[in-house]
Design a protein around this nucleic acid. Sequence first.
RNA 1: GGGCAUGUGGCGUAACUUGGAUAGCGCACCUGGCUUCGGACCAGGGGGUUGCGGGUUCAAAUCCCGUCAUGCCCGCCA
Length: 629
Amino acid sequence: MSAPGKDLKNEFIAAIKGSVSRNFKESDVAEEEILLSLSIPKPDNGDISSSISFRIAKAAKKNPKEIAEKLAAGAKGARFITRIEALNGYVNAFVDEREYAKHVLESIEGGKGEYARSDMGRGAKVIVESPSVNPNKPWHIGHLRNALLGDAISNMMEACSFKVEREDYIDDLGMQVAESFWGYMNLGSKPDKKFDTWLGEQYVEVNKRLKEKGVEQQVKSLLEKMEEGSSKESNEARRLSEECVKAQYQTASGYSVYHDVLVWESDIVRAKLLDKAFSILLENGIVKKETSGEYKDCIIVDLERIRQMAKDFESPSEDVKVLIRSNGTATYVAKDIAFHMWKFGMLSDTFNYGIFIGKQQNGKPLYTTAQSGERMDFANVKKAVNVIDNRQRYPQLILKSMFMLMGRKDIAEQIMHLSYGKVDVEGGTLSGREGGWMGSGRSYTADSLLEETERKVLEIVKSSEKISDKENAKAIARSVAIGAIKFEFLKIAPEKNITFSWARALNFEGNTGPYCMYTYARATKILRNQEIRKSLKDYNGMTRKHDFGLVKLLGNAPEVTEKACSEYRTNVITDYLIELCTAFSRFYETMPVLKGGSARELRLMIVDSTAEVLNEMLTVLGIATVSSM
RNA sequence: GGGCAUGUGGCGUAACUUGGAUAGCGCACCUGGCUUCGGACCAGGGGGUUGCGGGUUCAAAUCCCGUCAUGCCCGCCA
């Protein structure tokens, strides 16, 4: 895989390294150190820059400016770098724009739709868990953030050569489902709308009645029956949950979010995952069963041992964590421990699988754990990414630490909690229980967000004079709306809380998905009916004006994907896209392509390459491009 | 009480992991640009003591200490 930006860096590093060893024999700087010293200077100062002289100056107790001058004088470029200068202590390199442009454009051309990728993951199998919404209500915009993050992270990891399994954990044995189930049986309402929305409304209604006499007790006993597995109630509850998940997956499908497998809590219970896991843990003394005292009959883990294992482990007020309660039921963390032992292949063959959705719109089926069905080859991974909000930091930390206690540091290090901030709405929260997602006017479900956005986009599409493609207006509006929403969530760093605003969501100007999509549409419009010279020989039309700035950015795409992936930060890609689109727009305004004279072929090639990179990067975010909008 | 996250022009944000040249971008505001490849655009302008106080350093939004504010977590609940 070709990464021109990296090639350029390496050439510069080699040039500096060579100069250091010739001029400053006593100060041996590592290539890694030079790499960290690199930055992009203002265009006037050069194309790539290093601040390494400051470091050398410190060790040698000399003036950094002099060091830089000596370094620059003694450094020689090879293929791309023509000139190396010192300025204010920095060492700046200037690149031969024709030679480098040739390398970048040929790399993109040769990449055949896989240019902006990396082989970082080396085919390692990873399981990404998201969004794990309780199966008793519709996705609201908070769940949507999770789903979009999970989807984009999965795409990013795939682009970096990981083998990704997209898994969704369905807790159909929770209090929430029990409450909705109770409502279903006792409130006398019949489904008159999308099932998940209706069920969510039952849930809100039940929650209001929980204070009435006996209701809470009834719900609890209902949950107990559900957990028995073979009862009439458990079958009925599972059926209800499945219907709800089917509805939720209509939402997912609307956003082009897909999964490979659903894992149901009731199937985990049925497969006796807990028993298998805890017999191993008890055998090895990782956890112990208390026979007396405060925690009599509980299975606990000593938190002091965890504290010693994990330095950043916060000190909880208690000294032990109960994993299995005295009545034999498991806590959330206990379930997660067993589940992760399964993910990493530590438990023998367990689940049966069936098909939940025969064919998703990506062409693949969605499998599900099931009471009876086939054995399949899920899990057994090298890495697990859990997209879970930041409130679960503590239990996730215990989870990791448990593997440390098992002597499986290798696994502990490969459990990544992708912790993200919560989504609020102006003047309120999105509580599922209290119905905050229902809103007062427009609701905050993922469905209505898409609907509203699509409506607004459609208005714009219809009033646009430039679009000839009016028959496809609806399809275009749908794509643009999805792009707008996804970009809006993914451009915010995951750890930040978001306060949702309709005004921002329905703005399509500036740093937005539609801007990027629009840029792509303009690029492809130029290319329409044009022949792109695949093996362009003449790079003489290359200038240092707005064309080279654009080409340099194009050269960085593979590194951007890699950085985004290794940091689990989707905003690395959105930032790059904005930068790229801005550079292209500038190029578009100032450098005529079709009337470009002798530079025409070259500029066509630049436009073609930009469209290619835009398409690849947007695809990684889960955003499909349109050629007219 | 302990811990975690966040704090950057009126609003929303990037850069913080790995210190580097004048803190980047968008919205809103002001000025200009469509007979020329699509104005969901471009060019220009005003607006910032990066919460506050110390420290380290040639160099701090970035690292360290303290402090304030906001949100969250610390149940045999789920």
